[in-house]
Design a protein around this nucleic acid. Structure first.
Lengths: 225, 225
DNA sequence: CTTTGCTGTCACATAGCCATCACAAAAATA
DNA sequence: TATTTTTGTGATGGCTATGTGACAGCAAAG
C-alpha cells in the first residue's frame, strides 16, 4: 500500500517539484493551495504525512497545523523561509516533526520525508537492525527473523544459520565444502546429503523466493538477489 | 531523573560547546573522543540520546552508529560537515533520527535534541513515567509495575529485571549468555536451567501475553510486541 | 524467632530438530 | 538412448535444548 502525502503550498512550482520527487520515490501525492483547502481535504481523507508551507494566504502554516491536529494525528514537515528561527521554535513547540528551510534541495526533503514516515511506522523498527531486503523477502539479522511478503516465516536454527551465511555472502559461488565448514563447523564430517536436505528445508521456508537459492551443479550454491 | 546524552566528537572544543548548552538545558552529558570509546561506554551505560560526529579517527560515525545499534536501541543525531549529502543519505538509511550540519548553531542543535528526545516521550513516556505498552500489557519502568489487561501483576524482583531488560531490547534476538550477564551480572556462573526457570515464571506472570516471549532455539529469547 | 516469599538447583518430561538413509529426479556424459 | 553422476525429497529415530514441578537455602519482614 502506497504512503500518502499531502503537499500544501501556494506556489504551483514548489508543489510540482515535490510531487515529481515524491512520486519517483513511490509516494502518492495530493496537493492543496492553501490552509483552508488542506483542512477541507483532511476532513475527508487520511495521509501519512503533510508537507506544509509556513507562509500562505488565507490560513498560515502554523494555524493550519493546529487546526488539522485537532481532528487528525498526522506528522508534519514545515517549509519555512530562511532566517525564521523564531518560526522554527514555534513550529517545534506545536509538535511538528521536522522543518526544511527554503530554498531546499529536493533530495534533502525526501530524506526527511523518509525519516518522518519511517519513524511513525509501527513495526518500522528498521533503525539499528541489520537488515537485508530483496523484493518481498526481508531478513533481519539483529532480530533473527525472516519475513516473506509481509508474513513471518518460522525457521529452524540451522535454517537461520545457513540463510544468514548465504545472504551475508550473496552473489558469491559457495562451495559445498565451504558451506559445511562455515555453517556446521570445521570438524563436521557427515553425510553428503545433509547440506542438500537443509537447502531443501530452507527453500520451502522461503516460498516463492526459493528462486534466490541457485544450485551450482558440481560446485555448491549461490544466494542470488 | 535527568536525561542523559553521550557526545562523541574528536574535537574537544565542539564537545565543550555542546556540553555547555546541553547542561544549561538540564541534560547530563558524557563525552567520548572517538567511536571506539563511545562503543565501550555504551556497553556499560545507557543514554537517552547520542550525538555523533561523522568524521572521526578509529571508527567513523556511521560504523559507530551501526555497532551501537546492534546492542542498544538509542536515538542518534549526527554531526556532518557541509556538502556531505551522500553521507546524510547513508546516515538516514541507517535509521538515525536527525542530523545537523557543521558549523551548527548551538540553539538549533538543542532544538533538535529536544525534538528527538521529546519524540520518544509521547511514544514511551507518560506523565514522567517511562512506559511501554502493547495490547493489554503495560510495563511501567518508572513505577516498576506491570499491568495485564488492566489488572496489576505482582512480579518478583528478578522477574522485573528480566522483563525490563527484554522489553528495552525488544525485537532483538537476545542470546542466553547476554541475558545472563546483563540481568544476573557479568560474574554469574550458574546453572543452565536458571534462565529457563525465570522465563517460565515470567511467562506465567504475563498470562496471555506470554506469547510475546519467543524462544529462539539454540540462541536465546526475544521479546516481540 | 517465625513466617513468608524469592532464588537457584536438580531431575525428569517433552518437543522439535537434524543427520541419515533410500530412492527419485535431473543433469552430464558416453 | 543408455549410463553415470549429482542433486532433490520424504520419512524417521535418536538426540539435544527447553519446559516444568519440586525443593531447600536464604533473606527480609514481622
Amino acid at each position: 500500500m502506497k504512503q500518502r502525502i499531502l503537499v500544501v503550498d501556494d506556489e504551483e512550482k514548489i508543489r510540482a517539484i515535490i510531487r515529481k520527487y515524491a512520486e519517483f520515490e513511490g509516494y502518492e501525492i495530493t496537493e492543496a493551495r492553501d490552509g483552508m483547502e488542506a483542512l477541507e481535504i483532511c476532513r475527508k481523507e487520511d495521509f501519512n504525512l503533510i508537507i506544509l508551507d509556513v507562509m500562505m494566504p488565507e490560513l498560515d502554516g502554523f494555524s493550519t497545523c493546529r487546526e488539522i491536529r485537532k481532528i487528525k494525528n498526522i506528522p508534519f514537515i514545515m517549509l519555512s523561509a530562511r532566517g525564521e528561527e523564531y518560526d522554527k521554535i514555534h513550529g517545534f513547540e506545536l509538535g511538528i516533526d521536522d522543518y526544511v528551510v527554503k530554498p531546499f534541495s529536493p533530495r534533502e526533503l525526501m530524506m526527511r520525508v523518509k525519516v518522518v514516515i519511517g519513524r511513525n511506522e509501527p513495526k518500522g523498527m528498521t533503525g539499528g537492525h541489520e537488515i537485508f531486503q530483496a523484493e518481498g523477502l526481508v531478513v533481519d539479522f539483529t532480530g533473527r527473523t525472516v519475513t516473506v511478503n509481509g508474513k513471518r516465516a518460522e525457521l529452524s536454527p540451522k535454517e537461520y544459520d545457513l540463510l544468514f551465511y548465504m545472504v551475508r555472502n550473496r552473489n558469491i559461488a559457495l562451495e559445498r565444502e565451504r558451506l559445511i565448514t562455515e555453517v556446521w563447523g570445521y570438524d563436521y564430517y557427515g553425510d553428503d546429503r545433509t547440506l542438500d536436505t537443509h537447502i531443501k528445508l530452507l527453500r520451502s521456508s522461503l516460498g516463492e523466493y526459493r528462486r534466490f537459492l541457485v544450485t551450482l551443479r558440481g560446485v555448491g550454491y549461490r544466494f542470488e538477489a
